[in-house]
């Protein structure tokens, strides 16, 4: 029982990170129906910016988090403007291939400059390493901070999407881009803003994962990126609450599988979930089946 509770705590920390990445996927998909394969690599860049700002600039954890978010925000907008915007009217396959190209480009340019070696995050302030024992369960302050920061960011996102003008514009464009344009919404800027928000969250996730696992490498974005996408599909792609539920579900499942069976199987289980979802409920947990129109 204690072990289960312990695994759940670990799963929630990991799930928070997946949920942050999944939010970016789901928002971008919601607004331009693109699986942004480069999203996982934006998260990787975020982890490296956090590393550089802590190890080289000597900034604190939260300043580094903010710096990583701002850098990724800019990166996300640049990717959108340079690679995706010229393809607004192309086939979906063309945009998808471009996204894969951008993803590879980020990975290997990073590999070229920092090398393939794994780096470990600089030592954290003491309060990160505190531990509380509740019953037989050990809760580390690190996990609590990761969950806390993620939840705060998600609340902030929810506020932006639901209460601000630009959030309203995002929702309008995702419902019907043409109609939104007719209502005087600047669709291009709204799409860029969506990329900015999603990429900032991915950057935050990158720093948090550096804190959580303590190691980063240039190809670290591939797997979490794919898993976060699975999370988004699981919850219902395009839906913000779906990404949250999916992220936590995938995180907890993965931790339980590696805790009780084998860590080698965790990736296979996540993709098996994906295929099962696609077979039985392709619209995802919260999604509704929409009839397609000609």
């Amino acid at each position: 029982m204690d072990q289960l509770a312990q695994q759940l705590i670990n799963g929630l920390s990991l799930g928070s990170i997946y949920a942050l990445i999944a939010l970016g996927y789901t928002m971008v998909y919601g607004i331009i129906q693109l699986i942004n394969f480069a999203h996982g690599d934006v998260y990787m860049v975020g982890a490296y910016v956090g590393f550089a700002s802590m190890a080289i600039l000597g900034l604190g954890v939260f300043e580094s988090l903010a710096l990583a978010m701002v850098t990724c925000m800019i990166l996300g907008v640049v990717i959108e403007r340079v690679a995706y915007k010229p393809l607004r009217n192309s086939t979906r396959i063309a945009v998808l291939i471009t996204a894969i190209g951008v993803s590879l480009l980020l990975e290997y340019v990073m590999l070229y400059f920092v090398g393939a070696a794994v780096r470990s995050y600089p030592p954290l302030p003491d309060y990160f390493n505190a531990q509380f024992a509740v019953g037989g369960v050990v809760i580390s302050a690190k996990s609590l901070i990761i969950i806390g920061v993620s939840v705060a960011l998600m609340i902030g996102l929810q506020f932006i999407v639901q209460k601000t003008r630009i959030g309203k514009a995002m929702r309008a464009v995702s419902q019907d881009a043409d109609a939104a344009r007719l209502m005087g919404i600047n669709v291009d800027n709204t799409i860029s803003f969506t990329f900015a928000l999603g990429s900032a969250l991915a950057g935050a996730a990158g720093v948090l994962v550096g804190i959580y696992y303590n190691t980063i490498n240039p190809l670290m974005g591939i797997m979490p990126g794919l898993k976060a996408f699975v999370a988004a599909v699981f919850g219902g792609i395009g839906l913000i609450p779906g990404a949250l539920i999916g992220g936590y579900f995938i995180g907890v499942t993965e931790t339980l599988v590696s805790g009780y069976f084998s860590s080698l199987l965790q990736d296979a289980v996540v993709f098996a979930i994906l295929i099962l979802v696609l077979i039985f409920k392709p619209a995802g947990l919260l999604g509704k089946n929409v009839r397609e129109k000609v």
Binding site: A83, I97, T98, I100, G101, V102, S103, L104, L105, E107, Y108, V109, L111, Y112
Partner: peptide
């Protein structure tokens, strides 16, 4: 790989 990636984009 950088070349391949650029080629794709």
């Amino acid at each position: 790989m950088i070349l391949y990636a650029l080629l794709l984009v």
